[in-house]
Design a protein around this nucleic acid. Structure first.
Lengths: 130, 130
DNA sequence: GTCGTTGCAAAGCGTTTGCAGCCTA
DNA sequence: TAGGCTGCAAACGCTTTGCAACGAC
């Protein structure tokens, strides 16, 4: 169980080198540079398996397709660039969200998302609109 | 433009009376008590129009279908119950999220989601597992 | 009567599954 | 060589669109 295939190795390597959460199609595109015949279904199946084995972490975004990131980081949140659609890691966390929880509710988990422009898009955006 | 149809009136009334963000199917189910022949497509078309006219607000949730709420409230966030899948409003906001923004990024907007058990489910959950 | 609106069914789109052949261990 | 893995295509669930009939103004 869990064989070392060319496809799985490539998918892992792409995610490892990305440095940021990737979407299934981003992963497919990157892997196809090395494996042109790779299918999307294979990407999804491997992502599912890698999440199950806790090697990957799913980043569910509001109003956007899920991204996948290597699960070797601690608790953190994400910044979603509105312009290039890229997702970036934020090391910090506002903390103390229990204070926001209304009485009677049981808080188990939380998510914080920041939206705006990443450094690259900020530059292009600024210079373009000025 | 923007006629007053029985369908549109019912959809608005259901959303107004809900007191919490509703999903398209929740809206359909509620409206069908009064209009059994109402179609999902009509619900979607009206939601789109009501959002465009800024009467409604879309609540995009991570990993769940979007909900819709009447757009007469100020800035707030949401609590998503893992058990009944219901979404509830949270009046508060942690604030100062600019402090989390990494250098070089331009923060335009943010979202905070709390997950856990709503009062009803907390009770059922507790008593069920004990 | 006009033309925005509706219900139904079909089309889209991202994700999942079935299946025969492939390839790792 | 066995059984997990792959590519392809079909199936799926949610959302959108096409179209002819309907009904608000």
């Amino acid at each position: 169980m869990q064989r070392q295939t060319r496809q799985r190795r490539t998918i892992r390597s792409v995610l490892q080198q990305a440095g940021r959460p990737l979407s299934p199609t981003e992963i497919l595109a990157a892997c196809r540079e090395e494996l042109p015949r790779l299918g999307l279904a294979t990407v999804y199946r491997n992502l599912k398996a890698l999440v199950a084995s806790e090697w990957l972490h799913v980043v569910e975004l509001p109003g956007a397709a899920a991204r996948y990131e290597v699960a070797d980081k601690g608790h953190h949140h994400h910044f979603h660039c509105r312009y290039c659609d890229g997702v970036f890691e934020i090391d910090d966390c506002p903390g103390n969200l229990a204070a926001l929880t209304p009485p009677g509710f049981d808080l188990e988990h939380h998510e914080v998302f920041l939206f705006g422009a990443c450094p690259d898009c900020r530059q292009n955006h600024d210079s373009g609109s000025r």
